[in-house]
Design a protein around this nucleic acid. Sequence first.
DNA 1: TAAATTTTGTTGCGTACGCAACAAAATATT
DNA 2: AATATTTTGTTGCGTACGCAACAAAATTTA
Lengths: 198, 198
Amino acid sequence: MDAFFSCAKARRVNFKKGDFIIEAGATANEFGILLEGSAHSIKWDASGKQIIITMVEKGGAIGVLLVASPGRVSPLTVQATTDTTVLMFPFNQLFAGCEKKCHHHEQLLQDYIKIIADKGIELHERINCLLEPTVRKKIMTYLTTISNEKNSRTFILPINRNIMAEYLNVERSALSRELSRMKNDGLIDYCKNRFKIL
Amino acid sequence: MDAFFSCAKARRVNFKKGDFIIEAGATANEFGILLEGSAHSIKWDASGKQIIITMVEKGGAIGVLLVASPGRVSPLTVQATTDTTVLMFPFNQLFAGCEKKCHHHEQLLQDYIKIIADKGIELHERINCLLEPTVRKKIMTYLTTISNEKNSRTFILPINRNIMAEYLNVERSALSRELSRMKNDGLIDYCKNRFKIL
DNA sequence: TAAATTTTGTTGCGTACGCAACAAAATATT
DNA sequence: AATATTTTGTTGCGTACGCAACAAAATTTA
């Protein structure tokens, strides 16, 4: 931790629930790691309706893609959904070899790359779901991914139906309807958030 | 170029049209930059139908996300769509400080980060399109993105209708139908691949 | 523990869009 | 330039799913 603050020039920033951590249209020269609280990235469609693009939980990263493209303006707003604490890292410090050639520095760089790669993989996984043609297949792809991650055919979903519907880009009612049918067809079993793939 | 081959331990690899550059289920410890030719990443759905996930052109990157997660198996197959030449970089060499502390090394690392971040931004842009509820809005989001990138309200689309339909995840016929309607409604004008946003 | 709020499930209706089939135009191949 | 292949546009049909509205269950707040 000390190393972060000294050679990486990290700083701690607090946000209140509802605050904008990044605003659409702004550029970034820092990225952040969420130490406490949660946030989401949003945009507004043409009709002014809010669309949630991603959810960020404790430990999650903010602005890691944007920061690697100096001058690019953010297409999204990141908003704190609770009071939050964010550890902000100046992007340039990743490369500024520190005087002591400290080991933390190199570690930070590797961590950053891991974070940004994982972000990409997450996006890929979501696209995998979104590309499926039917609600049923979207659900199955999502559940299978979770199942593989948890290495078990039974697992507890970390999100509720509303969020799941938004993630898969389907109507919540259509999601519920299809879940029922899938249970009926013996494809899956579930009770509340405890799911089982059969 | 010499520096790439010496300190980054890059190597040139040729693939014939149809060859697999990365196979689904395999792990990776190298990433590649496409020097010649083109490729696409694909997967097969449950019914065995091929789904194109991304297109890679000359200068594009292959396996940059996967390589940053040691041990993770590839969810996709990358297939050469023409004869190709790929410059392969061992991931670990990115961090192995070379004896001369050469400048290229650091540059390569920064380039890699730029590539991987851009990849993420591309995925984001596609998700932006996919999340739109109607075919018309999907098209508008896509065209607007291209328009912004080219900094002009008139531009030539780099892809044909089939590819565009796949990218937006809509039926090709539905895409054509809606393009006609949008032209009729005075939203856009186009002739073949020359588009104009009105 | 009662009241309020959020989450989940259900169902009828209407339509946007997937699908199939065909025609015309553009491009490639011989 | 004649043939074959690919790309684009068009249209009718059927249905999967968006939408709205309501009820029940679960969770939170007072």
